[in-house]
Design a protein around this nucleic acid. Structure first.
Lengths: 248, 248
DNA sequence: ATTTGCCTTAATGGATACAAAATGACGATA
DNA sequence: TATCGTCATTTTGTATCCATTAAGGCAAAT
């Protein structure tokens, strides 16, 4: 949805944000009356929003019992990374056969943009949003170049899994970002050379390494599991009781 | 959803069936008033049903314009097969590491069940439903054994793509079925031997060949594209005008 | 003849009111 | 004391009604 201008779409967007940011914690009962009043709308569009979010997988639903913020186990999160790695690797394989002049240029531009943002030797807070946009655009460009729309669809829906999204990156570790962007360089070059398998291998590692980083981060700060909006610096010790079950 | 006992869930199921069976043809406007009356419910649960179907991709939606039966292009259908092949191959790779005694037994049982159903040398009409169930169960068992829930989720949603589902098989060609079931044998054996890559390769071919068959069938009977409920024998020449655009 | 603007009509989006189901508390009973 | 059943309350699910927006037709103007 481009510009949400119906109450339903607005509510959907706000709720998604609230859930991904941890404002609405996992397992929380989504009370229709209260939520509707909170959002200043009636229950009808709210229920519509909850229904779509339920299909997206962000909330769970039981007949006559209501909606709840879905809880994700640790293994589900890592599983999300594994599927993402496979799908985006597949995208590389397919994209290599579809490269055009324009495609090459677009990828090059994105990579160059990243170079610029990293030029200072640190990722400045003011550049963080732009880098994230560039990163998302790079990945989604490759997927679009694959010509297989399902890849994009599914990867997109995996970004709705808390902590499995690109929105989570260890922004405070420059070496990690630098290496990650170097992967982008190599992927773009491999694709432009028609080396699909090679690009796929880099992409797979690119994503699986992000998973390893997440695991590490969670080992260090387990209490923050599943509530990592955009952690430029790690937060500490809130809501310790609630996330126990998530450490599966 | 197990047993639909709310109007919404009932409507969702009925509409899904109506769309996949071609009763509601691609591109058709889904008139809320008329549909609600047709189903004997009010617009509220109908809209809820349409909302979920929109999320699963069976219908499209535009703000203030309404819901339409989604149209799938030829390339989208084949793309669905390709992703399915990749995901189920991945499932094999992972499953090989998780095989237990019980898992082996379950797969063996399914394979044996298939043997029995094919023993007559033809697939009898009365056995068709059972074979289909066995087939679905086999694939979904492998995916569950992978331990990665997303694989099952996504493959399941691909089964909502008309003509990309297991519900479509060339039931009238026994050799094809026999070979397909032989693949099941080999996949089960490879998994039980811990040969994940081998199982994956068979599975990939197993699914991609189904895609080839579909292509062939569509070349022979293009007018039936995207309205193949359970074609035990090919239907002919209905609604010729409507599906033109789908032959991309 | 074609296009533009208005107006009528119809369909969608949302709010409210009502029905049905589940939850929780209380008391009765073993 | 623990357990079961009943009843009151809360919350969900659905129907109906109203508001708002899009669609279509007609007429006027270029």
């Amino acid at each position: 949805m481009g510009e949400p201008h119906t109450s339903t779409e607005l509510a959907t967007a706000r709720l998604r944000e609230a859930i991904l940011s941890g404002e609405l914690p996992p397992g929380e009962k989504l009370h229709q009356d209260r939520l509707a009043e909170l959002l200043g709308i009636s229950r009808t569009p709210l229920r519509a929003a909850l229904t779509t979010l339920a299909q997206t997988g962000l909330v769970s639903y039981e007949s006559n019992r209501g909606f709840f913020v879905r809880e994700f186990s640790f293994s589900e999160v890592t599983a999300a990374f594994e599927v993402r790695a496979e799908l985006e690797a597949m995208a590389c394989r397919l994209a290599a056969a579809n490269m055009t002049e324009e495609a090459n240029r677009h990828l090059s531009e994105l990579v160059a943009e990243g170079d610029l943002l990293l030029a200072p030797g640190v990722l400045l807070a003011e550049n963080l949003g732009d880098y994230r946009r560039m990163n998302v655009e790079f990945h989604s460009t490759v997927m679009k170049l694959s010509g297989n729309p399902w890849i994009n669809t599914f990867v997109h829906s995996l970004h709705n899994v808390p902590a499995a999204s690109d929105r989570v990156i260890m922004w405070h570790n420059f070496k990690v970002i630098e290496r990650s962007h170097d992967d982008h360089h190599r992927i773009a070059r491999a694709l432009s050379n028609g080396q699909g398998e090679r690009a796929a291998a880099i992409m797979r590692e690119h994503i699986l390494y992000a998973m390893e980083l997440l695991k590490l981060q969670l080992k260090l700060y387990p209490q923050d599991f599943l509530r990592m909006p955009i952690p430029d610096k790690p937060l500490k010790g809130r809501r310790p009781a609630r996330n126990r079950r998530l450490t599966e």
